[in-house]
């Protein structure tokens, strides 16, 4: 997979990150190295290895379906830069 400046800009846009030209070129350098390492791993024959879903060999970690009191609203909103009428307030989103 080829990583270009466009890839970086696309991913930054999806993540709502505003990057400077300098940051973009740094990330391009890092990302290229990461992908090159992945390409190296691809040289291994993994045709007989099952895809890893999780690194830990543990399955079925569940909780019982019981409802408990939620968190105080004031505490939830305490770190919000803006709130109004018990809601988190963010810049208007357009669809």
């Amino acid at each position: 997979m080829e990583i270009t400046k466009n890839t970086i800009e696309h991913i930054a846009n999806l993540s709502r990150l505003d990057l400077t030209e300098e940051e973009k070129s740094m990330l391009l350098f890092d990302m290229k190295q990461i992908i090159a390492y992945m390409d190296k791993l691809k040289e291994l024959d993994t045709s007989k290895v099952k895809p890893t879903a999780h690194v830990m060999q543990i399955n079925n970690v569940f909780r019982e379906d019981k409802s408990e009191p939620s968190y105080p609203k004031e505490k939830l909103l305490a770190n919000a830069p803006l709130s109004e009428g018990g809601c988190f307030k963010v810049p208007k989103v357009v669809e």
């Binding site: 939830l76 009428g85 809601c87 988190f88 963010v90 208007k92």
Partner: peptide
């Protein structure tokens, strides 16, 4: 009016 969105989780 406020050009804002309110979120209820």
């Amino acid at each position: 009016q406020q050009s804002a969105s309110l979120i209820d989780f």
